[in-house]
């Protein structure tokens, strides 16, 4: 089963490359030689083993489990076909999770990209002391999820938190950052964006600095304002990077777990009960491994669909 893709991927490019000659030919002979094939498997072996144990087997096992009912230790008991999936997709609770995850992921991706772009655009200017800002803007890259969560929990704290103090000082109504369902979502989004920003900023800054300066010089001679240059030179020129960053942020958003666990535990009233957090609770709190498996596969399909859409829609607008 594993044999055919491996041999194909190694022989096809060589065999199809028939424009020359001795080198190619002797190399395809190499692959056809039975004894050398043995060597090939030795070299491929370790990675196939690791992928098999940690990727292929869990994936197949998940698919398998999702078609059964399981007992509390995760052993399959009764085959139920697609019942797990049907249950999930008709459950208001699950659909809520789906909805809040969408809101969260889309908001996080959009805000991260826009803020990253704004910061990178500032930091790409050659100004005195700009290095300090570049370091500060990218600093969150070195912060772990747990530290970020605790840090923001302090800020959001209803009695001693910074935001609460500011509200008091300005005589504004107090916001229950982590206790109000709407604001809890906002709080989680803010924290995630803050976490993502360092990486996004750094990648976008790198892309901006690789745009040839003569493009801007030519544009400024021809009368293009800085704003016009941003939208008509910078953004088109860094579009491959924007594309990359948006996909990474989106996928990371769907996979968000640690922050939710530390900040809201999916609450209040499931307002931040994201898909991955839900899988975790279903599997390891409720012991419902079958349903958790089905949820995992649905999540995989959702991420795949989003990635495909991004490729289809954005690829036309991306200039490589």
């Amino acid at each position: 089963m594993l044999k055919s893709p491996a041999t194909h991927s190694s022989t096809t490019p060589l065999a199809s490359n028939d424009e020359t000659s001795k080198a190619t030919k002797s190399r395809s002979d190499f692959w056809l030689n039975a004894k050398d094939k043995y060597y090939a498997w030795i070299f491929l072996g370790p990675s196939l083993l690791i992928l098999g144990v940690f990727i292929f087997y869990p994936m197949l096992k998940t698919l398998y489990l999702s078609l059964f009912l399981t007992n509390t230790v995760g052993k399959p008991t009764v085959f139920v076909g697609l019942a797990n999936y049907i249950n999930l997709l008709t459950s208001a609770d699950y659909l809520n999770s789906l909805a809040v995850t969408m809101v969260y992921v889309l908001a996080v991706t959009a805000i991260t990209i826009v803020l990253g772009l704004v910061l990178a655009n500032f930091a790409s200017k050659q100004l005195a002391g700009i290095g300090i800002f570049r370091t500060l803007f990218s600093a969150t890259m070195g912060v772990s999820v747990s530290v970020a969560a605790i840090f923001w929990l302090f800020i959001f704290n209803p009695s001693t938190g910074f935001l609460s103090l500011v509200s008091t000082w300005l005589h504004l109504p107090q916001i229950g950052w982590l206790t109000d369902p709407t604001w809890a979502m906002v709080a989680v989004i803010i924290t995630t964006v803050w976490m993502n920003l360092g990486f996004t900023f750094l990648i976008l800054l790198g892309a901006m600095q690789s745009v040839p300066t003569t493009l801007y010089e030519a544009a400024s001679i021809e009368g293009a304002t800085p704003r016009y240059q941003l939208f008509h030179i910078t953004i088109p020129m860094i579009s491959p990077t924007l594309f990359f960053v948006s996909i990474i942020t989106l996928i990371e958003g769907f996979k968000s777990f640690g922050l939710i666990d530390l900040m809201t535990k999916g609450g209040p009233t499931n307002a931040t009960n994201m898909l991955v957090y839900r899988i975790y609770k279903d599997a390891f709190y409720s012991g419902n491994y079958a349903q958790a498996s089905a949820e995992s596969l649905i999540l995989t399909v959702i991420i795949a669909i989003f990635t495909l859409i991004q490729f289809k829609v954005l690829e036309k607008r991306v200039n490589y």
Binding site: P212, T214, L215, E217, A218, I221, P236, M237, S239
Partner: peptide, 13 residues
Amino acid sequence: LTMVFQNYALYPF
């Protein structure tokens, strides 16, 4: 005025 650069400064996209 206008300026022509050594690398032409064309917008590749």
